[in-house]
Design a protein around this nucleic acid. Sequence first.
DNA 1: TAGCAGATGATAATTATTATCAATGACGGA
DNA 2: TCCGTCATTGATAATAATTATCATCTGCTA
Lengths: 165, 165
Amino acid sequence: MTEVKLLGGQGRGDYAQARLAEFVANCRRKKMAVTPQRRAVLRALLESGDHPRADRVYARVRREHPHISLATVHRTLERLCEVGEARKVTPLHETARYDGNTRPHHHVVCVRCKRVEDLEAPEFDTLLAGRQTLGEFHLLGCSVEVRALCHRCRKRTAGRSPSAA
Amino acid sequence: MTEVKLLGGQGRGDYAQARLAEFVANCRRKKMAVTPQRRAVLRALLESGDHPRADRVYARVRREHPHISLATVHRTLERLCEVGEARKVTPLHETARYDGNTRPHHHVVCVRCKRVEDLEAPEFDTLLAGRQTLGEFHLLGCSVEVRALCHRCRKRTAGRSPSAA
DNA sequence: TAGCAGATGATAATTATTATCAATGACGGA
DNA sequence: TCCGTCATTGATAATAATTATCATCTGCTA
């Protein structure tokens, strides 16, 4: 059986404090303004151990910051992802794509042009194969999305590291 | 190096014909009406080897079927996924979720309530570790989404197999 | 501390998807 | 083969999430 570990919502307390301090330092380094709104959005994100949608973050930030705009929350979350302070748990293509191939398979997605190709990689499936459950979860299967740059996009892309990592 | 294989757009010609015949048979078995629209949508999906969005499918279907409604295309694609004739290449939660945890990790998502938990599974990453490219793709990393049922949802869910597989 | 580039708030616009509902047509039974 | 029923369709309105716009404001460097 392979090593897989569920992580509890560990984004609380000290961790949040440390990350917030790091964030300020990183902003200074990157010449990115440290505004109260940005701090508040990141704090709200770190304090909610789950994976909130923008509107949940908005609701939480408003408790301390009643004047913040929803647009700012959206913008800030995107910004945080760009600079590597957060991750967006969504596929690279925002809108639904459909696939007529019903055999089990995974996908490679170009992070730039969002082109999707099918990928056969039975290894991925075998990793969970022996396992029925994980903590309180009853496992059904898994989908792997391999992030990549296609040939064409690679030629045109300068280094903008964290957003793709 | 592990066995991973890119699949070309193999959804053409004979394959489409066979799948279409199967589809009709499956509909009969499941008492689901076989309408020209449904046939056309599935054919369009099979004929486009890529992973089209609903609007692309709509555009293609309209060439033969100028009166079809966009709503029907959306409905039909969803329906096809429900009965296992197609797959939706999108996370289970439609709207963006954000994650303040910047360590590399994956996710478990409950297919019913869409709850997301972090998952540490280095094994997944090692599978691609030795590999720089895959066909014309330059690899960057991968995200695994493990589909599961959380404890609470499991208790309330009757068997509706294909949509979750 | 002044000035400016970048950030914000308010709001409009856009985009994808779903809901509504009357009209239609697929399909099992006569 | 025809008929009645009920799922499906088309047209359109509604919803929901996100992005664009733009005037105003504010961190930050000099």
